[in-house]
């Protein structure tokens, strides 16, 4: 016997009600008008937990339309479980086309990475942000950090970075590395590795940041100056890898370390799975690439 579901609870298109979408849309417009400033918004509970991308999901749900093609990545990969889950959510509630191909997506929701393939005008990159306040770990109080932003008083964060140099000989921040936007607001780029920071600078794409639990939205319009904080004698540097991707031989990309056995065997592969697959399709091969050619379904149209 199959029980008939009752109409005890029903949900609106794209999950959010229209009033909520309007509220988020207004916050997005303010964010774009004041690049790097965190706009408070009345974040809603979402059907996934806070901390699991609710900010990004609310932003995406508020901007997405029937003609959009959505890509969702977590750690650069389309096949990580949370990315799969969020993609399935939008397929279900908004019935949009989804893709794993960076170049084909109109909206890319991401956690922790910026795709390797350069973004283009018209694309929107939506970041899931856990802690939007770049000063939070230096000053836990919102009342204080708000004052610091208002007065453009960023001495504290420079002191923190400089203490790193004094103690460790280098700036010991490797991800969520703070940036300054258009010479005004210090902004948290979300926990992307600092490797990705230069990609934010004057990107042709619109970048939107959603922090659901902390109730903040912020934005970088295209072609906006985004400069990683540094010092004259200790300029900002990105991570470098000693070897290319073991699967596609890519260099100058961000690599994940994959443990192969329990005797210390490991290899480095692209964290951006789409980038890696694309390169292998084009015939690039790393020293551990499998023989079998790839044949993956990449785009699913709306139903």
């Amino acid at each position: 016997m199959t029980a008939q579901p009752t109409d005890i609870a029903t949900y609106n298109f794209a999950y959010l009600d229209e009033q909520t979408k309007r509220m988020i849309r207004r916050a997005i417009l303010k964010g774009i008008a004041i690049p790097g400033y965190q706009v408070p918004f009345a974040s809603r509970e979402m059907p996934m937990p806070y901390g699991w991308g609710t900010g990004g999901v609310q932003v995406t749900a508020s901007i997405i339309g029937p003609d959009d093609v959505l890509k969702v990545i977590d750690q650069g990969a389309d096949d990580t479980t949370n990315a799969v889950s969020i993609r399935a959510f939008f397929k279900k509630v908004a019935n949009v086309a989804v893709t794993t191909e960076t170049a084909k997506a109109t909206i890319i929701q991401t956690r922790h990475r910026i795709p390797e393939h350069p973004l283009s005008a018209g694309q929107v990159l939506v970041y899931q942000v856990p802690i939007p306040e770049p000063l939070r770990f230096l000053e836990p109080r919102e009342t204080e950090t708000r004052k610091m932003h208002a007065l453009e008083e960023y001495g504290l964060i420079h002191v923190k970075l400089y203490e790193d140099i004094a103690k460790h000989g280098r700036i010991a921040t490797t991800y969520a590395y703070p940036v300054k936007v258009e010479g005004r607001y210090v902004m948290d780029p979300s926990p992307t590795p600092k490797f990705d920071n230069p990609k934010m600078h004057r990107s042709p794409a619109l970048q939107l940041f959603g922090a659901g639990r902390e109730k903040r939205i912020y934005a970088l319009p295209p072609f906006t100056d985004v400069v990683s904080l540094d010092f004259e004698d200790h300029p900002f540097e990105v991570q470098t890898f000693d070897q290319p991707c073991a699967l596609c031989a890519a260099e100058n990309v961000y690599l994940d370390e994959v443990i192969l056995d329990d005797h210390g065997g490991h290899m480095f592969v692209c964290s951006d799975t789409d980038h890696c697959e694309k390169r292998r399709e084009q015939g690039h091969r790393g020293h551990l690439a499998p023989e079998i050619p790839l044949a993956l379904e990449k785009t699913e149209p709306a139903q």
Partner: peptide
């Protein structure tokens, strides 16, 4: 609970 989500990109860094 979000701590159980993958964080390997940051961990790599």
């Amino acid at each position: 609970e979000h701590l159980k989500l993958p964080h390997y990109v940051d961990f790599q860094a």
